[in-house]
């Protein structure tokens, strides 16, 4: 008669892959963690006029040399001496293009009313930046 002997199996949990799992977790968190990215419109402000001695010369610029965008509290924009009106971004682009065609070195001055919205000022600066204009002046009075 054949006697079968019961084999005792050792109960073990395979732990060989836990290291791989942990490293995968580390890599997952490293690749998915998103830090606060800074994105925006960069500008360089003009230097402050320090004293009467260093006061810069006053130069009068004509409309051929400088374009003025005056932003009013209700969002209307006056270009140079024209009557203020609401100008869409596309129309702003064409105005800028026209001015650059007149003079490629055109200076754009943005005079914003103290009560005007910051968003309206950014919209004009953005359109100028999109047209690759470097000579942008912001009024800080």
């Amino acid at each position: 008669m054949k006697i079968t002997r019961k084999r005792k199996y050792k109960a073990t949990i395979p732990t060989a892959s836990t290291g791989d799992i942990a490293f995968l977790l580390i890599i997952f968190f490293m690749s998915t963690t998103k830090f606060d990215v800074k994105e925006g419109i960069k500008l360089v402000l003009p230097k402050a006029v320090e004293s009467q001695e260093n006061k810069t010369q006053t130069i009068t610029l004509t409309e051929k040399e400088m374009t003025r965008f005056q932003i009013l509290p209700d969002g209307q924009i006056a270009v140079n001496r024209e009557a203020p009106r609401y100008i869409e971004s596309e129309e702003l682009d064409t105005i800028i293009q026209q001015k650059v065609q007149i003079n490629p070195d055109m200076i754009f001055k943005i005079i914003t009313d103290r009560d005007a919205k910051y968003n309206d000022m950014i919209r004009v600066v953005d359109r100028l930046k999109a047209a690759k204009i470097e000579k942008i002046s912001l009024s800080t009075s």
Partner: peptide, 22 residues
């Protein structure tokens, strides 16, 4: 309102911190 931004930018000019980003 732009007024407060104008005031802050004036102070930046005083501090000679001229590079700004909006």
């Amino acid at each position: 309102k732009y007024g407060v931004m104008s005031d802050v930018m004036r102070q930046l000019q005083d501090a000679n911190a001229l590079v700004v980003a909006f």
